[in-house]
Simulated assay, not measured.
Amino acid sequence: MARGWDWGGLIVCLCFASFFLGLVVLMPVMLSLYGSPSSPSFSIDLFDNQAFNMARAEGSPKNLTIHFHLKLKNENSAIGLHYPDPFKITFSYFPNVSMLVNLAEYKVDSFYQGNGKTKHVSDLVETNGMPTVLEGTDMVAFRVDLVGTYRYKKVGTKRHKVEVGCVVGVNYTTSQKMQTGFIRLAQPGLDSQLKPPSNDDYGAY
């Protein structure tokens, strides 16, 4: 007499095989999402849709209104980000290659950013003076620096400090920008070393 199939045992084996296969497939994906999360990215559009004349005539204002649009993007599709401290944005300019002059500062309050979300900050700031051209050129070389902290929404994670910046060139006579649209804020280059070091209000990380 032939033995019948052990259907119960076969089903159990198939369930275990499916579970194991699922782990094999999902583990690399989960590790890529949670194991090595990405840092947030920042980009800025300076003087967006702003018409102004940089050239100063007699009796003209002694300061400048800077319109800006900042984008802060969480590059992680599976992890939220906390920004526990206010972001500080500094607007400066280069009168020459060895000097950087502060024009204005702006702060973005602390906030939480969901998975893969982008935060937009569009505002204007008044400068404490008028910039001059970069020596030997007809351009004003604006510098934008952003300093702050962020923390992944994971148990036991620490704060990470972010310090990024970019340079935006504007023709002094025509007010035409050398770069259009959003410019990515990257890790500071050699030009950022011209600035005196700021006080570290965040402590150790």
Rank of each mutant, 00 (worst) to 15 (best):
K62A: 14
S98L: 10
S32P: 02
T132L: 05
F142K: 02
N49C: 11
N171A: 06
H120L: 12
I89T: 04
T174N: 07
M139G: 02
D109I: 04
F94N: 00
V25S: 07
T118A: 01
G156Y: 00
R159T: 04
M54W: 14
Y172D: 10
A17T: 11
F19W: 09
E163I: 09
G116D: 05
D6E: 09
I79V: 11
L23N: 08
V121G: 06
M30C: 10
P131K: 00
L146F: 08
L23Y: 11
L64S: 01
T149G: 02
H82F: 08
K161S: 08
F91A: 03
G156N: 00
R56M: 12
G181I: 13
R3P: 06
G114H: 08
A2E: 13
A78I: 03
L194K: 09
S92F: 05
V147C: 06
S38H: 10
L72Q: 07
Q113M: 07
R3V: 13
K158C: 04
K88M: 09
G181S: 09
A2T: 15
P196S: 07
F42N: 07
K154V: 05
M30A: 07
K158I: 06
D145K: 08
A186V: 15
M30F: 10
E75T: 04
Q179S: 15
P196M: 05
R56L: 11
D191A: 14
F52N: 01
T174A: 04
G59F: 11
L33G: 06
L194W: 07
F142Q: 02
Y106F: 15
P196L: 06
H69L: 12
M54N: 11
M178N: 14
I11L: 14
N96F: 05
P37W: 09
D48M: 09
D200I: 15
T127A: 03
N74V: 03
